[in-house]
């Protein structure tokens, strides 16, 4: 529905001297989604994010947030942004920084900030200067600062940067919580495993152009592999190999290679025919990394065709 579109990017272009960062780029982001921008280095992801915030002006086209042009500060009223590699003053404590932010936002959300700090397990760092924190601790504090309150749109540039596995899990939970609170979250990250775990939709950008977009499930294809979950993996593997399938054993089952992705029903019949007890079977789908590589490969080949 029209009213659900939060971000509307219409045919924008941006160049930095001779480098074309974005070219005829259009995009719509629905309210409440967890959205990721994916693409190789220099694809134009950060430029797009900065155009959304009015930090970089586009050469042509229009960008609106809630139908307000991004040149207006009002469009950023409930928008939060965490840049990559931001360095806050080393003397400042999280409490001081939050007070500074409250002054600018003209709002008080100290309690929400405390809650966010508890959520990101950095509540004990409130009075510690940032200069005396590790990189991961600073990142947690920065995420708490940015996401406290009731934001409508949160833009995160490499949010898991510098975090240990525990910290990454907390960030995933934070993103899900923000979404459940009604916020739209836009993530720019190269950590595809993290993106895959939290995002519902993705946009692939290459050489300043949108090359694919959609829900993650619809973007990933079924592969030529099937997974059979069984306690009797050795026998299952032997039986399927006798039927001509190439198999490998995994911890709680067997991965079988299909002659072609559409022959999964044939394998299913073969598994039933073996008479060996199994608890589950499914055709494996591409991971986001596979999708990314495939889409980029296609784009590269198309680009080569155009050049040749």
């Amino acid at each position: 529905m029209e009213k659900d579109i939060l971000i509307r990017v219409d045919n924008i272009s941006k160049s930095f001297r001779k480098v074309q960062a974005l070219s005829g780029f259009s995009l719509s982001v629905s309210s409440g989604s967890i959205f990721s921008l994916l693409g190789p280095n220099g694809a134009g992801k950060t430029t797009l994010m900065k155009i959304l915030l009015g930090l970089v002006g586009s050469d042509s086209g229009s960008v609106t947030i809630y139908d307000l042009p991004v040149s207006s500060p009002l469009s950023r009223r409930n928008v939060r942004y965490l840049p990559e590699n931001v360095t806050f003053p080393s003397w400042a404590t999280p409490e001081v920084l939050f007070r500074q932010l409250e002054r600018i936002r003209h709002e008080s959300s100290t309690e929400e900030f405390r809650q966010r700090c508890i959520e990101l397990e950095c509540a004990d760092l409130m009075k510690r200067p940032l200069g005396k924190m590790s990189r991961g601790q600073k990142q947690r504090v920065a995420l708490s600062l940015v996401t406290a309150g009731k934001p409508d749109l949160v833009l995160l540039d490499e949010p898991s940067s510098g975090l240990d596995p525990g910290g990454r899990i907390l960030v995933r939970n934070l993103i899900r919580n923000l979404s459940s609170e009604g916020a739209t979250v836009l993530i720019n990250s190269h950590l595809l495993g993290e993106v895959e775990r939290v995002c519902d939709t993705a946009t692939f950008i290459s050489r300043g152009r949108l090359i694919a977009e959609g829900e993650l499930d619809s973007l990933s294809r079924q592969t030529g592999l099937a997974y059979i979950e069984t306690d009797n993996a050795d026998n299952m593997k032997l039986s399927l190999e006798k039927l001509g399938y190439s198999c490998r054993k995994e911890s709680k089952g067997v991965v079988a290679e299909l002659p072609d992705p559409s022959s999964f029903p044939d394998l299913a019949r073969s598994v039933l025919d073996t008479g060996i007890r199994f608890t589950g079977m499914n055709q494996m789908r591409e991971s986001l990394e596979d999708v990314f590589l495939r889409i980029m490969q296609n784009d590269s080949e198309q680009g080569d065709d155009i050049v040749s």
Binding site: K50, L53, P73, R76, V79, Y81, P83, V86, T87, I104
Partner: peptide, 14 residues
Amino acid sequence: GQGRMPFWLSLPQT
């Protein structure tokens, strides 16, 4: 230089 300007400018102020 410290990367704080994008942060300040992303807040609702001119």
